[in-house]
Amino acid sequence: MIYRLLTADDTSAFCHKVSEALAKGWELYGSPSYAYDSQNNVMRCAQAVVKHEHAPYSPDLKLGQQ
């Protein structure tokens, strides 16, 4: 299994990022998280996703291309 944490400002772009990962076979892992970024005055979102891969893990793996 491989793991990714998607993060972005709380905009529709974040939803599209998560939707794209789901379309590529990633699965939601846990609930989304939200936090206020006081330095940039925005809400930030995070969502963990996982994918079941049968190939050996390598730190060189490009997770966004999976």
Rank of each mutant, 00 (worst) to 15 (best):
L63N: 06
L5P: 08
Q47M: 06
G64A: 10
C45W: 06
S31N: 03
M43S: 10
L6V: 05
L5Q: 15
L63S: 04
A35H: 04
G64E: 08
K24W: 05
E53V: 13
Y3N: 10
P59M: 06
E53C: 12
V18Q: 03
E20H: 02
D60P: 10
N41K: 14
V42T: 08
V42S: 00
C15T: 09
V18E: 02
E53N: 09
G64H: 07
S31L: 09
Y29V: 05
A55V: 15
S58I: 09
R44F: 00
V50Q: 09
F14H: 04
D9N: 14
A46F: 14
W26I: 08
G25E: 02
A48Q: 08
A13L: 11
Q39F: 08
D10R: 04
A21G: 03
Y57I: 15
W26G: 00
S19D: 01
A55T: 13
E20R: 01
Y34M: 08
L28W: 06
L5S: 12
P59G: 06
Y36P: 05
L61R: 09
M43A: 14
Q47R: 01
E27V: 11
A21P: 00
T11R: 07
Y34Q: 06
G30T: 03
H54G: 13
S31I: 13
D9C: 07
P59H: 04
S38W: 15
W26H: 01
R4W: 11
S33W: 14
P32D: 03
M43Y: 14
R4F: 11
H16K: 01
Y3I: 08
A55P: 09
D60Q: 03
S31W: 14
C15Y: 08
V50R: 14
Y29I: 01
L28A: 01
N40I: 12
D10H: 03
K62E: 03
G30K: 01
K51V: 14
D10L: 11
G64I: 14
V18I: 04
L22A: 09
Y34L: 10
K51Q: 04
Q39C: 11
A46E: 12
L5F: 15
D9W: 03
Y3H: 11
G25H: 02
S31D: 10
S38A: 15
H16G: 00
S33N: 09
L63C: 06
K24A: 05
L63W: 12
K24H: 05
A8E: 05
R44C: 14
L5H: 13
C15G: 10
L5D: 07
L22F: 00
R4K: 14
